[in-house]
Amino acid sequence: MKAGYRLFTSFCWVSALLPVAGVCGLIAFLLRQGWDVLGLKLFFGDTPPLDAIFGFAPVWDGIWPACFGTLAVIALAGLTAIPLGLFCGIHLSEFPRSRFTGLLDFCVNLLAGMPSILMGLFGFALILFLRHTLMPNASTGLLLSGFCMGLLILPYMVKATQSSLAGLPDDLRLMGAGLGFSKSQAIRHILLPSAGRGIMGGVVLSIGRAAEDTAVIMLTGVVANAGLPRGLFDNYEALPFFIYTMAAEYQSPEELQRGFGAALVLLALTTGLFLAAHGLHNAMEKRWKRG
């Protein structure tokens, strides 16, 4: 019995240490490969940084347009998926069970299991359909990528909201109703803030997925050397696509090194977004608790 427990504990410890070791190893590897290339030149090439940032001059040899494109795709995907996923999760958790909720649950699970390349193909087919019907000038671009990426991350938001709300004690629901709160007041002022940490987990997961996925954007608007997009319907660059092309088609060791540098930037960018999301959540939680 004692030996069995010791084996169990050891297994738990090893399992807990492996992800930590994996992440540390990955970061150390990326730092080793890409540290030297980190600098303004990686971002802006030979273009003056301020001119590049404000779009006065094009960037031919830097990842600044790719950083901007990635941030834009994340923002558009978030704008699509976060509100939709939140309300969808509320419907699944807080509304009475019916045939429709069963169907909705099934569809969300199906969407969660859908490979991202299919989402890209869907976006591409959508543009082809629009070109032959309503919009002959429709083309792939930032908006389409954002929308398709939003669909890809929607199940993360739905499931995070649904499971966080479902995990709350029934006493909270009964208390709101007992005080005379309407259903929407109870959800807005009691249940959602109480489930905030879990929902924020879904947001973080969604941001991470939107930042890294390449299959969706490859078929919906990302191109190499597009520069900064001039509008929502324009093609754009993105960091994961840049990393992919550098890794797959590099002509010199320096190009590969720039790929590693871009990977470090992508990691820093998503970490920054996670921290911002947590900061926002903490501020909201503090405001909710103290009024």
């Binding site: 208390m175 005080l179 002022h189």
Partner: peptide
């Protein structure tokens, strides 16, 4: 909802909101 707001109820186990004391009364 109006009925419940006029017919107050206190439960067996204390179920305070996970917020400040004053906000429990003000919200």
């Amino acid at each position: 909802e109006r009925l419940r707001s006029r017919v107050g109820m206190v439960f067996q186990t204390p179920n305070v909101l996970p917020i400040s004391i004053e906000r429990n009364l003000l919200l």
